[in-house]
Design a protein around this nucleic acid. Sequence first.
DNA 1: ATCGTAGCCTGGAGGC
DNA 2: TGCCTCCAGGCTACGA
Length: 298
Amino acid sequence: MPELPEVEVVRRGLERLAGQTVSTVEVLTARSVRRHLAGPTDFAARLAGRRLGGARRRGKYLWLPLDDDRIDDGDVLLGHLGMSGQFLVVGSQAPLESHLRVRLGLEPIRTGLELDLRFVDQRTFGGLAITTVTPSAHDGTVVPAPIAHLGVDPLEPTFDSERFSDRLRHRRTGVKRALLDQTLVSGVGNIYADEALWQARLHYARPTETLRRAEVGRLLAAVRSVLQDALGQGGTSFDALYVDVDGQAGYFERALAVYGREDQPCPRCGTPIRRHPFMNRSSYVCPRCQPRPRRARW
DNA sequence: ATCGTAGCCTGGAGGC
DNA sequence: TGCCTCCAGGCTACGA
């Protein structure tokens, strides 16, 4: 389940493609380019012959700037991994993956070294699109137009902690719901939300308007520390669905304190971890470290 | 405007 | 063994 750390691992892997030129484009599953409104044919036509720039990321989105010797119109190749998306850099002769959706052939840098950039996605929640760029509504950074509304992510230098605190405390909802709202802060998903709330000793249903500034500070520090630690381990893998561009899984699952650990002891106090239904999925909490607030907001 | 929910999608796990 | 249901969950569209 790729969240910010997993996407960052993939971004770093894609940086090696900077300067390479796309020679061929095959869209095997039209749904995977559904965000490219002009359709799969236009997608392929606009990508072929373009030179890839260094990979960028905000939250869970990745993009590669596109140009060539004649054109620099600010177009980018924007991608989202969804639940099960993978970007793989493999030799062009490698067997086709069963859920291969989009295949980009790259011009060989030297004879005998033909590489593909492949987008593989079992559940097809992810996808690719060619888009223009525009200033972000939040910090003015130039980003792909479809994500101009997306909040700055907590590992970016332009992330404004005071603004985050103000915006969070003006919400009238539960704190986990707010953490998962990508327009408030991007990059945090269900796994790292639970981990950060546990570290900050906050219950997921704590009403945002009752949070004190110090608690928001604790929460933000926890979010950053959990994301950084996961990044240091190469991300979290529960199955073969999250891998880096070479197909390798991360190791952070071993370090998770609560997520997926129902009935196992809290690493801090030993109380068995509980799983609660939340937004049609699950929240994992330590009932002792994270007591349910008297007034709860889901 | 803000908040909350349904639906998209596939394969693995577990029950019968 | 095989069929069925449930579950995973990021994001968008839509309704209240």
